[in-house]
Amino acid sequence: MTDSHSAAIAQPATPPFGFSDDETYLIVEGVDFADFYRKERSGLVAFVVNHGADHQEASDAVQTAFAAVLPPRWETIREPRAYLRKAALREYYRSAPRAVTTVELTEEDVATALTGGSPPLDIVEAAEGVQWVISALTILPLKQRQVMAWHIDGYSHAEIAKHLCIPVTAVRKNFSRAKQTLQDYHSNQRREAG
């Protein structure tokens, strides 16, 4: 998903927080931090929840990511939507080094996912589907969970590949495997329910 903001582009001397020296990034000017924060925060929290965090862990990671890019650093980021997703995930994984296997969902987690702008997978309905998707994502291996979370957030395979630094073919393969696993999981749950 390409950010809808465009402005003058320049290259900073050092990489912004969360990027290594060899990662490609460019600067964009003219994206208002406060407006962006209000518009994107809940969606970013939902994105981190989709990676296996609970609401509080996701909120903390998102807050840390936003704090790290407060102006004037804010003006050094070209794709703030993707950049903050990477930074928030890095913070979540750094602060939660445990293996994520299952997630106990609260009503707040489901509400965050529902209002965060992340559409549910096409195999489930909206209200109950969001809770199912969040818990089902936790059964996936890490790379498949990452690909699905970016996909749920509206990114194309090419964009996911760029942001995860993996080939597009690997994104397609992980997406396909994840989708099949989720479909099987859904079918098994329906059979068990009667």
Rank of each mutant, 00 (worst) to 15 (best):
A58N: 09
L84Y: 11
A34G: 07
A88D: 08
V31R: 14
A82E: 10
D32Q: 02
Q56S: 05
V28C: 08
V49W: 00
F47P: 02
E91I: 02
R73N: 11
K39W: 12
A61Q: 03
F33K: 06
D32W: 02
P72E: 08
D60I: 09
A61F: 07
E29C: 04
R90G: 15
I77N: 08
N50Y: 15
L70Q: 15
A68Q: 14
E75K: 07
R41L: 11
Y25I: 13
F36V: 04
G30T: 14
Y25N: 10
L84E: 01
L44Y: 04
V28S: 11
Y93G: 02
Y83H: 15
P71C: 10
A53Y: 03
T76Y: 07
E40K: 15
L84Q: 03
P80A: 08
I27Q: 03
Y25T: 14
H55V: 13
K39Y: 10
Y83D: 11
L70G: 04
H55E: 13
G43P: 05
W74S: 05
L89K: 09
L26W: 07
W74F: 11
E91M: 10
F36W: 10
D32C: 02
A53W: 07
D54L: 00
L44H: 11
A88F: 03
A68H: 14
V49P: 01
Y37M: 06
R85T: 00
E57S: 12
Y25G: 09
R41S: 14
A61L: 03
G43R: 08
Y93H: 12
A68G: 15
R38Y: 01
R78Q: 03
Q56K: 04
R85E: 02
H55F: 12
R38C: 01
R41P: 00
Q56Y: 02
E29T: 15
A58G: 06
R85L: 01
L70T: 15
E29H: 10
F47S: 00
H51I: 08
Y93C: 02
I27F: 00
D60A: 10
R90A: 10
Q63R: 15
Q63V: 09
A61S: 13
D32R: 10
R38D: 13
E75N: 06
Y25L: 15
A53M: 07
T76I: 05
P80I: 00
D60K: 09
D32I: 00
Q63M: 10
P72Y: 09
R73W: 00
E75C: 00
Y83I: 03
L44R: 01
F33V: 13
L44V: 10
G52Y: 06
Y37L: 11
V31F: 00
E79G: 06
D60E: 03
L70F: 01
V48Y: 12
V69K: 05
V45Y: 05
F47Q: 07
D32H: 14
P72L: 08
S42D: 05
L89H: 04
